[in-house]
């Protein structure tokens, strides 16, 4: 009896010490999930979330001070991916997301003032002073920073057109037995 109790106690103490030591020596500096989350985000540091850059937003999401849905350019897909990563449940229906968008310049309105190109986080707007500007569709992240800078309302966000090359066959609907399948 005594032998059993003492050996168990000893074992517990030894393992506890080991764990304590491990937590000290093998301590990870910084939260690795922040980096993972930062990698998932658009990375344009557009600032629409209210944080200075995607890295800070990732930290805020992990802290719980910002919702996973705080990134407008990432939209629903990103919110869902972050929620899945962090194990959060998320009501995606509340996220206003009509799909990816890009900024488009109405050429007849543009006066070539260059205000929009200064705020573009990815330098996606080209055009010199007094020249009609244009948005490079591939480089635009859809952050819409430029929209309010435009004095003539020449800039608007338009949904990214779906092309044949980008179309994806929908996943088959799970309609058998009306049962959830997971």
């Amino acid at each position: 009896m005594l032998a059993a109790v003492s050996s168990l106690a000893l074992l517990g103490a030894a393992l506890g010490l080991l764990l304590g030591a491990a937590s000290r020596w093998l301590r990870v500096e910084g939260n690795p999930i922040v980096d993972e989350l930062t990698d998932m985000m658009p990375g344009s540091n557009c600032g629409q979330c209210g944080f200075p850059g995607c890295g800070k937003a990732a930290e805020a999401i992990i802290d719980g001070t910002a919702p996973p849905t705080c990134c407008p350019p990432g939209g629903k897909p990103l919110a869902a991916a972050i929620a899945a990563k962090l194990g959060l449940t998320l009501d995606l229906t509340t996220v206003a997301d009509e799909g990816p968008k890009v900024a488009v310049v109405a050429e007849e309105l543009c006066i070539g003032c260059c205000r929009c190109s200064k705020v573009c986080p990815t330098d996606a707007i080209i055009g010199a002073a007094k020249q009609i500007h244009n948005v490079m569709r591939d480089a635009c992240t859809g952050c819409s920073n430029c929209i309010e800078k435009c004095p003539t309302d020449a800039l608007a966000m338009r949904p990214t057109p779906i092309t044949l090359q980008h179309w994806v066959m929908p996943k088959p609907a799970l309609h058998y037995r009306g049962m959830p399948c997971a």
Partner: peptide
């Protein structure tokens, strides 16, 4: 995404 990050960095 990579291209965006590169562009942002370049900027």
């Amino acid at each position: 995404n990579e291209a965006t990050k590169r562009l942002a960095q370049q900027r």
